[in-house]
Design a protein around this nucleic acid. Structure first.
Length: 574
RNA sequence: GCACCCGUAGCUCAGCUGGAUAGAGCGCUGCCCUCCGAAGGCAGAGGCCCAAGGUUCGAAUCCUUGCGGGUGCGCCA
């Protein structure tokens, strides 16, 4: 249940009644009528803009409509006060029993509180990470991994059926480079001197792979031409890298439902099938592209190639499908991959990319729009760069100097929970500063700590109360403003989940938790000055039980919220 | 040159997809521990929401233009 939708429904019913009474004309559209928490608590608990939105189509003054509406709403027992304000807002103050009810509901529904059925079971495929299988995951991948994973959990919580998918780029030239690099390590394992020239991966992580290759094949490949070993070494190397990546993801707590191999699209007719589908829609043709304006490539020459008419679906220029040597461009398997996703019957698709793939969004959307004939929406979420800091100083990354920060480095340093939460304290399309020292700091300016601390405080109180024989299943009692503030914040949770899910923005969950924790800490501290507001009171067990009910509700929501972010709520801090 | 993202307190950023007097943390000023964990809380100062137009009852939010920053722009994926 969502209190805001309840009251929204109440407002709509009242409007219908006004229409029946002839106070409003028939057939008004209520689409823009909203019920929201006002920014200023002095304006009440909720406000509706109904009168202002309907004034024009109804041909009546906003304040008149508001007055009439107020009269009807005031008869509902949940509404303590309805008053017209400003240009025609209708401010509602809800009766205290409503907030009491909210807390009780949280306790009753427990981890299910805030679950929504917005998705109505629709199937969504969230593709993320999808790093090339050529090495360990680095910081940039980490953000994408955390974001995609949290978004997937969020959508699941909001009622979608979610598939978490990883697209393995194992079909392009970079896996050949990987194979050659592993081959060099293999020769090295046989005692040969090798040189890592440009176009090979010199990373240490391949030493072990080369050694394992030696164990498996002995010297069968030594001194042999590429044609002999390429296929086998490549498969072996990709497999090894995917093991590495899977381990990295596991360390972060990310588990994919599905891995999709780009290679499986080649030589199987699947790319051809996707292109044929587009061709059947008249979107494939042979032509010559204009050179890009402003920045002319040095070796530019006009060239006829197979093109996809992506401009028919909102792209800026048509995109090449085949290279000049008639092999596929990287775009072709991507089309086939998304064709496959559409064929698998997903109702919605989400791709999580790094910001450097921004230029890729329009053509991908065009492809999906064409393939699904507009039936399957694709949302592409771009994750901006992560800038690393150490004690306030920029942390320089350089492959050459060996200071190449991997996902593993970060998680080993600060742990998966901190890594995940911090990665979600920024909007996905805003750059993120990650300071190794600050994220471990135990203070209010570290949101991870602040939220965890609130949860730990509550669990601490519950343990002590239990030991003191105080009942933990009493109904809540709310008396103080600070308590009501917390209850009201809890009432916002279901609404926030819906907003975050609709906008595909899991960071909103993190910010909400920070606010909820703030309200809770304020209440906690008030207990220092006013002992009767303390949660745990041996002198008044019954009152204490009523207070603890509220605290338990807070812990439930924090726990649920952290669950969406993939962060473990802690029992105690130390 | 074109496309996408961004521009909000001194700094780092939220702002509920158009609502009322624009918020938080850090930093600055002043308070609150014989009291459930002060690892916390309260209060104050600090803003022409980049600029100019437009849409309307109402704009930080939507549209246009300009300025400033980031990313990308056929045979790398």
């Amino acid at each position: 249940m969502n209190l805001f939708t309840d009251i929204h429904r109440l407002v709509i019913e009242a409007l219908d009644t006004l229409t029946e009474d002839g106070a409003l004309p028939e057939g008004l559209a209520y689409d823009n009528v909203t019920v929201e928490p006002p920014r200023d608590p002095a304006h009440g608990d909720m406000a509706t803009n109904a009168a202002m939105v309907l004034a024009k189509p109804a041909g009546r003054k906003p304040r008149d409509i508001a007055e009439a509406l107020a009269g009807h709403l005031a008869t509902d027992e949940r509404i303590a006060l309805a008053e017209v304000a400003g240009p025609g807002f209708l401010n509602l103050r809800l009766s205290e029993s409503v907030w009491q009810g909210v807390v009780q509901e949280v306790l009753a529904e427990d981890a299910g509180y805030g679950r929504a059925d917005m998705g109505q079971g629709r199937r969504v495929n969230v593709e993320y990470v999808s790093a090339n299988p050529t090495g360990p995951l680095h910081v940039g991948h980490t953000r994408g991994a955390v974001f995609g994973d949290a978004l997937a959990s969020l959508l699941d919580f909001a009622g979608w059926t979610v598939t978490r998918e990883y697209y393995i780029n194992d079909g392009g030239g970079q896996v050949d480079v990987l194979a050659r690099s592993v081959y060099l390590r293999y020769l090295e394992a046989h005692g040969q001197e090798v040189a890592f020239e440009d176009g090979t991966y010199p990373g240490d992580y391949l030493i072990e792979v080369g050694a394992r290759l030696k164990e498996l094949h002995g010297d069968a490949f030594v001194g042999q031409p590429e044609s002999v070993w390429m296929e086998e070494v490549r498969t072996f190397a990709v497999e090894a890298m995917m093991d590495l990546i899977r381990t990295d993801l596991a360390v972060l707590g990310v588990e994919m439902d599905s891995f999709f191999s780009e290679k499986s699209l080649y030589g199987t007719g699947r790319i051809e099938a996707a292109i044929e589908d587009l061709d059947g829609k008249g979107l494939i043709y042979r032509g010559t592209l204009e050179p890009p304006k402003g920045k002319m490539p040095e070796d530019w020459e006009p060239r006829e190639q197979m093109l996809f008419r992506s401009t028919a679906h909102g792209d800026d220029v048509d995109r090449p499908i085949r290279k000049s040597d008639e092999s596929w461009t990287y775009f072709a398997p991507d089309i086939a991959y998304h064709y496959d996703k559409v064929s698998r019957g997903y109702d919605e698709l989400i791709d999580v990319f790094g910001a450097d793939h921004g230029g890729y969004v329009k053509r991908m959307k065009a492809a999906v729009a064409a393939l699904s004939e507009g039936a399957v929406p694709l949302d592409v979420k771009l994750c901006q760069l992560v800038k690393l800091y150490k004690d306030g100083e920029p942390f320089k990354m350089s492959k050459r100097a060996g200071t190449f920060i991997t996902l593993r480095d970060v998680v080993d340093e600060v742990g998966p929970d901190v890594t995940r939460f911090v990665m979600l304290t920024r909007k996905n399309d805003a750059p993120l500063d990650f300071d190794f020292d600050k994220v471990l700091e135990q203070s209010r300016d570290n949101p991870v700590f602040y939220v965890q601390y609130a949860h730990a405080r509550i669990r601490s109180v519950m343990r002590k109360a239990e030991a003191a024989g105080i009942a933990l299943d009493e109904p809540p009692r709310l008396e103080d403003d600070a308590e009501l503030a917390v209850a009201k914040k809890l009432a916002e949770w279901p609404r926030l989940v819906e907003i975050a899910a609709r906008s595909h923005e899991p960071h909103r969950i993190a910010f909400y938790l920070y606010e909820l924790a703030g309200d809770f800490h304020a209440l906690w501290n008030k207990g220092n000055e006013s002992p009767h507001l303390r949660f745990h009171r041996d002198d008044a067990p019954e009152a204490s039980a009523g207070k603890i009910a509220l605290a338990r509700a807070v812990a439930i929501v924090i726990s649920a919220g952290l669950g969406i972010l993939g962060v473990t709520p802690v029992e105690e801090m130390r």
